[in-house]
Write a protein that binds this DNA or RNA. Structure first.
Length: 425
RNA sequence: GGAGGGAUGGCCGAGCGGUUUAAGGCGGCGGUCUUGAAAACCGUUGACCCAAAAGGUCCGUGGGUUCGAAUCCUACUCCCUCCGCCA
């Protein structure tokens, strides 16, 4: 959520930003409501001041033994006026809030302006795509060939966009989770969190999934519980309504992620790329506003370290205004090379939300020795999407005989296994 | 699921209709004393709205009663204790 004061004073900038982000927002109504609010407030406060003053007088009179009841009739009217204005203000506030919630974050000046992903900017490319002396397979053919992924049975018990892993596949997933968590906690200074996998509406609103994107989420019937679409939600809400004493704070969390994937019919229907449930290790930071872009570089490099340690070729993109997430001010996507599909695919998304989420969640901090509180900046990034990392390993490490080599750093997590062959299933 | 108890400032905790601009304590900060520290003593110390002052809001959340609500009524949420069930 943007600061209403900022919107008021920079209406044109906000209008342009919404246009660049392809968001339709009724800014005129918002500004009109803001004006109305600022009209009501002084009147209301003057009346309340009057009521406070007279009430004190009544108290004093009663104590002194005189009869104060002469003012009661007129004060009753004041009370009624206050109630009327409060109701009016409440309605204005509610609508104002609703409109404010619908405005996407302001993109950082360095973000390329553009319609969609075609306007994304290539930041850099790392690693060399492997050469094969055979035609590399898709990960679903490799996985099924090895018997470590079962697409059909998962569909029977759950439906489309669900899969299940078996044997060395399950273990590889588990190995990846542990490897990533260990890397971030021991090398990058993150504290591991194991959060709830369901959260309430307030938390979903805090990070920006609600109220606008309910259709992308799964909700538990007859409750206020939503399945988390990413660990970003519980972990960023960790410090709801708190004044932090020390920054930066770095958290990492493994969770499954649940996404309704509404509107993605026909996209990535095969394989492990787009599922209703997938595993992810997330990185979240709470940082000082002056340093949040340094931290974005740092956090992104932490995600990149996972890729480089796994020796997977990847590139970094800076998302354009049209392709960025609603709450983000700047986002880098890391895209891993997939030889079976001969393309780069998103495996991590690292964003600086500046104070957009912090304002909704109420995360502030106080500089040592300072009196005022200030909103913290929040960031997060995938470090990494585990299922897609499995895809990348299957495709990049595939061998002519149908087996898949295990990246060296994962071998300790696989009980020393160097290669998944058909007989290992 | 049943019965009972509770929710007050960073924490503990008083207040149960009118100088509450929320007592007191702990913690934090500043000072006195000390070579330094501790102890002791003195002072100070919530958030939010408002450019600021003045002022206003906030005692779990919403609604109500009243001239006036932390205090009374009401609904909801959450927490605790006991019973039941249970990995």
């Amino acid at each position: 959520m943007l600061d209403i004061k900022f919107v008021r004073e920079n209406a044109e900038l906000v209008r342009q930003s919404c246009r660049n982000r392809r968001a339709r927002v009724d800014l005129e109504q918002l500004l009109a409501l803001d004006g109305k609010r600022r009209e009501i407030l002084p009147t209301l406060e003057a009346l309340r001041q009057e009521r406070n003053r007279v009430s004190q007088e009544v108290g004093r009179a009663k104590k002194a033994g005189t009869d104060p009841s002469a003012v009661f009739a007129s004060m009753k009217q004041v009370g009624e006026q206050i109630k009327t204005l409060e109701q009016e203000l409440g309605q204005v506030d509610e609508l104002l809030q609703e409109l404010l919630y619908a405005i996407p974050n302001l993109p950082h000046a360095s973000v390329p302006v553009g319609e969609d992903e075609n306007a994304n900017e290539l930041v850099g490319v790392w690693g060399t795509p492997p050469e094969f002396d055979f035609e590399p397979l898709n990960h679903w053919d490799i996985g099924e060939g090895l018997g470590i992924v079962d697409f059909e049975r998962a569909v029977k018990m759950a439906g489309a966009r669900f899969t299940l892993l078996k044997g060395a596949g399950s273990r590889l997933e588990r190995a990846l989770i542990n490897f990533m968590l260990d890397l971030h906690t021991t090398q990058h200074g993150y504290l591991e969190i194991l959060p709830p996998f369901m959260v309430n509406s307030k938390a979903m609103t805090g990070t920006g999934q609600l109220p606008k994107f309910a259709a992308d989420l799964f909700k538990v019937q007859d409750t206020d519980y939503w399945l988390i679409p990413t660990a970003e939600v519980p972990v960023t809400n960790l410090h709801m309504d708190e004044i932090l004493e020390e920054l930066p704070l770095r958290y990492t969390a493994y969770t499954p992620c649940f996404r309704a994937e509404a509107g993605s019919y026909g996209k990535d229907v095969r394989g492990l790329i787009r599922l209703h449930q997938f595993d992810k290790v997330e990185l979240v930071q709470f940082v000082h506003p002056e340093k949040s872009y340094q931290h974005l570089e740092e956090l992104t490099s932490h995600a990149e370290t996972v890729l480089s340690q796994l020796e997977l070729p990847y590139r970094r993109m800076c998302l354009s205004t049209g392709d960025m997430g609603f709450s983000s001010a700047k986002t880098y996507d890391l895209e891993v090379w997939l030889p079976g599909q001969k393309t780069y695919r998103e495996i991590s998304s690292c964003s600086n939300f500046e104070d957009f989420q912090a304002r909704r969640i109420g995360v502030r901090f106080r500089d040592k020795g300072r009196k005022n509180t200030e909103l913290a900046h929040t960031l997060n990034g995938s470090g990494l999407a585990v299922g897609r990392t499995m895809v990348a390993i299957l495709e990049n490490y595939q061998q002519a005989d149908g087996s898949v080599a295990i990246p060296e750093v994962l071998q300790p997590y696989m009980g020393g296994l160097k290669k998944i062959c058909v007989e290992d299933k």
